[in-house]
Design a protein around this nucleic acid. Sequence first.
DNA 1: CGTATTGTTCGACATCCATAGAACAATAAA
DNA 2: TTTATTGTTCTATGGATGTCGAACAATACG
Lengths: 110, 110
Amino acid sequence: MKPYQHPTVDQITLTGLLHALSDPVRLNFVQCLATRMCEQPCGAIPTPVAKSTMSHHLRVLREAGVVRIRTEGTQSLTSLRLTEIEAKFPGVLGAVLKAADAEKPLEEHS
Amino acid sequence: MKPYQHPTVDQITLTGLLHALSDPVRLNFVQCLATRMCEQPCGAIPTPVAKSTMSHHLRVLREAGVVRIRTEGTQSLTSLRLTEIEAKFPGVLGAVLKAADAEKPLEEHS
DNA sequence: CGTATTGTTCGACATCCATAGAACAATAAA
DNA sequence: TTTATTGTTCTATGGATGTCGAACAATACG
């Protein structure tokens, strides 16, 4: 597959980050990513939307600098750029993730 | 004028909050509100958009629970619901405001 | 090679959204 | 009362967005 384009930390904007996290589907995906703390293929995370829709959301998250995606075989492994974002916007992503978990805890039994 | 409708703290959602803050014009307005720490009429804050557009943004912020607006004479005074939001989503708004100021400091000379 | 798995890309579509101007409403000031 | 100030509402518009199905691409597995 094609290699993915990722913005550098400098290119990440606060409003871009907030916008990427403001969609319920995306926020839920990021939340899953954060709790598992490791690379995940798209299919490993339960989503309520179609495959193509998820691909779109992943692209939004990637272009906003929220996630990093690399290819391995047929699946694309996604990881959260947590430390990078925390370095640029200290506390933001951490607080959002904590708030998301407080508002709607993930069911950790899949 | 009409009295304004404000959501209760329970009705404030995380995605709604993030979406409200994800627009540059709105984030800048909230940033001004935070640094001045007191009620402000709309006109007291410099904005790059038309009056009607600002009215729209204010409504978005109000309906998301970010600001509280009350009427006094001809002007509507807007205040940030900082403590309420911090109580519900600890750290989120604070970190966003700090990040906003680090990314684009306000010129405090008007 | 043929098939399955995993995502991406491409229309298409409905909706939301940021923007602005014009008209209006309500109060203040003269 | 007339005028000014302040902000809302209405309408319109161009662009972004979330959603999906179908077709496609690339690799893995028989």
